[in-house]
Design a protein around this nucleic acid. Structure first.
Lengths: 251, 251
DNA sequence: TTAAAATGTGTATTAGTGACACAACCTACA
DNA sequence: TGTAGGTTGTGTCACTAATACACATTTTAA
């Protein structure tokens, strides 16, 4: 951290960061990957700074790869947070102290920061969450019960979920959040979680199949406690074509 | 300009700007307010810098008020452009020269810039377009035939239009772009222009009236060359309530 | 063997969309 | 002054999509 404070001013774009809301779907719950900050009980979105000559999208990709160990992640910029009061001067000073330094007036790190928000969709089981330098844990948290978060990170997470909900018919949500093979009930649970409401089982299935974007694999998922459901995969070509014009329909 | 270059570094947030895509509707055309840059034939979106302790939204509002003379404008942030190559180093140097100075290495103005894009909806007839310091004209241009623009401003304008189209059922587009009283054909033309396709007159009217967001004023617009159409107004309360859940329907 | 819970499949009703026809109106111009 | 051309107001019909249900089947646990 101390070294970071030394080189930050020359390496990174001033007053600019990126934060990522990384969504995963597991055990019928939509989850977000959060970092537990050192020396406090608060959590934070994975984020980072933008190098002076780096595309902001690339900065977000760096963060994602470092936190999840994954490449080729689905990523969308969704909003930029530019309230001058969004930084927490107290916390900044605290971090300075912990690095064994005296706060330097006008230091790069102590200025006001703008942050660009990205949301990412990843396949839960493939990620290997890793803390970064300033956190001591990296865990999935259900969007229904997010812990106490630093700064405006709760607001950023909420806005990401709003965006996801709004764009549900235009983004490859199922394809990116579910494993390659999945069942119709699983797909429905995903939709229900994102939309925050229950859907009729039979109407959901009819509609999904009508889009023509699913491949029926013929197999069944065995081992469940009940009737074995069929497995499906996305027909990626048809799926992407359908998303371009939007999956029509009101949910 | 020269004075600006002197105070910029201390007054404004480094490497950050806002650009506004200001939409207006006139003579059945969707228009954007553009600035003709001095000493070149290119046009630019109205933009500005963000003061060190200023909310980015406020910076955009400043720009809007200065260019249009209007207050209380409808404004939405839609995307942040962070390609490191989006600035035009040649043009920067040119501006420096024109201010009668030698380019200073590492000057605030010559660094890489991120820009936050906003779109605004205003009532065409109420605006009084005014150029800023670095432009010599401020004019409405049809979105169908945008002139040559600096940097990535064409891309920004296109993205704003895409966003407008995407959000058409969730934003008070009619209410903000049309005068208080308007006719059904006018409202339809607005929708057609934004969507970029023709709509059936009768189905459009049926659908619009079904929303229950219009007040029939009983009056007719006289003076036209043909049958006098009825005048309508938005029932703002019902309109806003309907927008919250979205005007359902595919266009 | 059976109960409980989940999945697979089907149907009737209602609401919404898309395509289209005709009458009423206003002005311009013969 | 009266008629043609263009525009607006209103209505209908067929078709598609959405909603609300019912019943049989499969799987495990008791």
């Amino acid at each position: 951290m101390s070294e970071f404070l030394d080189i930050a001013a020359e390496k990174y774009h001033p007053g600019l960061s990126v934060d990522c809301v990384i969504f995963g779907f597991h055990e019928n719950e939509l989850k977000v990957l959060l970092l537990k900050m050192k020396h406090t009980s608060k959590w934070a979105l994975p984020g980072g700074f933008v190098e002076k000559n780096e595309h902001i999208d690339l900065a977000a990709i760096r963060v994602l790869e470092n936190r999840t160990g994954l490449k080729d992640i689905f990523l969308k910029q969704f909003y930029t947070f530019g309230d001058p009061d969004r930084h927490d001067h107290e916390m900044d000073l605290e971090l300075f102290k912990q690095s064994g330094r005296d706060p330097v007036k006008d230091h790069w790190f102590l200025q006001r920061f703008i942050t660009v928000g990205y949301y990412a969709l990843i396949e839960f089981s493939k990620a290997s969450p890793r803390p970064d330098d300033i956190s001591d844990a990296c865990e999935w948290k259900s969007v229904d019960e997010l812990p106490d978060m630093i700064l405006d990170h709760r607001e950023i997470a909420d806005k990401a979920l709003d965006t996801l909900r709004f764009q549900i018919n235009y983004q490859p949500i199922g394809h990116r959040l579910l494993p390659v093979k999945f069942t119709m009930p699983e797909l429905q649970k995903l939709y229900e979680t994102i939309l925050g409401k229950e859907l009729d089982r039979r109407n959901f299935q009819r509609k999904m199949l009508a889009y023509g974007i699913l491949k029926d694999l013929g197999e069944r998922r065995k081992g469940g406690a009940h009737k074995a459901p069929y497995l499906y995969s996305f027909d990626v070509k048809k799926y992407n074509a359908a998303l371009k014009i939007g999956l029509k329909g009101s949910w």
